[in-house]
Amino acid sequence: MANAVMERSAQTMDVESKEVEIRVDHLGVTFQDNEGNDVQALTNVNLTVHKGEFVSLLGPSGCGKTTLLRCVADLQEPTEGEIKVGGKTPREIRMAQKFGFVFQQPVLFDWRTVKKNVELPLEMMYQTKERRSKRADEMLEMVGLTNFANHYPGQLSGGMQQRVNIARALGIRPDILLMDEPFSALDEFTKEKLHEDLLRIWSKTNKTILFVTHNIQEAVFLSDRVCVLSPHPGRLSAIVDITLPRPRTLDMRETPEFNELVRQVRDSFEGGSL
């Protein structure tokens, strides 16, 4: 246990020397509102995410954090600047099925069982039935839903549905996990449970995670680094290193170090509306 803590903290210390996974360079996104006026969703965003890092994009609604995530996932075109993922364009990475995207809503298919939902992306990859079934079983075991494999999404609670969503995203063995406020619709108890689950899964698989949230405690608790975005126009106003040791436990939320980091993050918002 102590060993693991040392290892992780060592990783966060010399993060500079690690391989770059995502590079966002002078990114800007402008779109038209209903009256035809230009609205700057994002302007001049520069960000580097390293392999295996857990980075949060934190900000109030309207700050463009989801837009940034969607640009990385190639769900949206940037109007300025560029993004490189492992030296390639986001489209190339998307077409190579290297992204796992977790939406705020579970987006499950109600005519498929839980297991078949997890198998869906594997069907896109033309995997054989046996391999799909084996992989789905593994994933469901990881998120603790083995007993619900043959249930339908409508029979599960919101927290369980979100766990299926995460299992599905991880099933394709993505290099990068992109999460768009995945826990914001859940109650506190479920959320805390899923935070622990996510960190456990992350430490096992060592994926790069880009995590969008508007919850400061959540961002500080989960991340290696917190990117603070401010609105009007959406911009990256600060990056805060989270020096808390790993593995993180729920008691850490009570420590002065944690509260100090939360305060530091809160202070770095620009515009003072918070």
């Binding site: 998307r94 796992g100 995207f101």
Partner: peptide, 18 residues
């Protein structure tokens, strides 16, 4: 069919017939 479902399929690089 919601926008999210289309986008989810897009992240898997799903073909049209799929």
């Amino acid at each position: 069919v919601s926008k999210e479902r289309y986008e989810l399929m897009a992240t898997y690089a799903a073909k049209k017939y799929q």
